[in-house]
């Protein structure tokens, strides 16, 4: 018996010589690797040149680099640049704490809740992710101006705005860690006599700690790097570092900015390194983005 009614064998592409097989395999692989290499170069290039430009002697970066100089760093490490950097740091730190508190509570509420409209509520809470941020920023400026609160512009307005855009991230990371939480662990705690507060502090919180922590780190980074909200809500002398850089490079080319940029990258990397000691944060950030 055969699969074909009338037996006729249909063959695969079939035998080729070892050389041909090797070529077939290698050509495609080489092509793929070259493409990959070019793309990765494209991704890495602008970051790498920022580092080089910050210690390059001349104003314009050429190849080969002219020589080593710290003058851009000297220009960068002045009040002109460190003022906004410090403001950004404080802003991001407070934003992270506030977003995490509001976000953790909200995530718990959503996760526990079985009320009607739960999904709609979650969608509403995450909606700032879908709204273009520049629209949110512009709308907030109009709002503050119209209700006569022009005075909040600067740190307070920036803080209020940054919490709006970081809150969804905090909610999402905590939701992710709640999904991995076995509800029966809390039942067990309550069964053993823990009241709801004790249960939360002794059982729930330690178990979702990684998520909360990751959410805070994520909120910090988003706030620290934010442009579209900060664009509208700062005031002269009271602007975060990305906006300070933006305003500066718009008008002239200044390698001091490269040094400032390196400082901001270093701050974020340092934060992640520190956070990583307390919780497995980087994995969460990765998951979150997926």
């Amino acid at each position: 018996m055969t699969v074909a009614a009338e037996h006729r064998r249909i063959r695969v592409a079939g035998y080729v010589s070892p050389t041909r097989a090797w070529l077939e395999r290698s050509l495609l692989t080489i092509l793929y690797r070259v493409a990959l290499g070019l793309i990765l170069t494209f991704i890495a290039a602008p970051i790498v040149v920022v580092f080089i430009a910050s210690v390059n002697e001349t104003q314009y970066l050429r190849f080969p680099p002219a020589g080593f100089s710290t003058r851009w760093w000297e220009a960068a490490l002045t009040e002109r640049w460190m003022g906004p950097t410090w403001l950004s740091l404080r802003l991001a730190a407070v934003t992270a704490v506030m977003s995490s508190i509001l976000g953790t509570l909200a995530a718990l509420g959503i996760y526990r809740g079985s009320f009607r409209g739960r999904d709609a509520l979650l969608a509403a809470l995450l909606s700032p992710l879908i709204l273009p941020q520049i629209v949110t920023g512009a709308a907030m400026l109009q709002f503050f101006a119209l209700i006569g609160l022009r005075d909040v512009l600067g740190f307070p307005a920036l803080l209020l705005g940054h919490i709006v855009i970081t809150l969804p991230y905090a909610i999402r990371t905590v939701m992710v860690s709640l999904h991995g939480l076995d509800r029966r662990l809390e039942w067990a705690a309550q069964d053993l006599g823990a009241n709801p507060v004790q249960t939360f502090v002794r059982v729930t919180l330690p178990l979702i700690k990684n998520g909360v922590f990751a959410g805070a780190v994520f909120a910090f980074i988003v706030s620290f790097n934010d442009v579209p909200i900060s664009l509208f809500l700062g005031r002269p002398g009271n602007i975060p570092i990305p906006i300070a850089i933006l305003g500066h490079v718009e008008s002239r080319f200044d390698p001091a900015v490269a040094a400032v940029a390196v400082v901001t990258i270093a701050i974020v990397l340092a934060l992640i390194a520190i956070a990583e000691r307390f919780a497995r944060v980087s994995e969460f950030i990765y998951q979150q983005e997926r």
């Binding site: 035998y15 070892p18 097989a21 090797w22």
Partner: peptide, 13 residues
């Protein structure tokens, strides 16, 4: 009866 260990999967029957 034919050596195939140099062949990719799609050339093996």
């Amino acid at each position: 009866g034919q050596r195939v260990d140099h062949l990719p999967p799609y050339r093996r029957d």
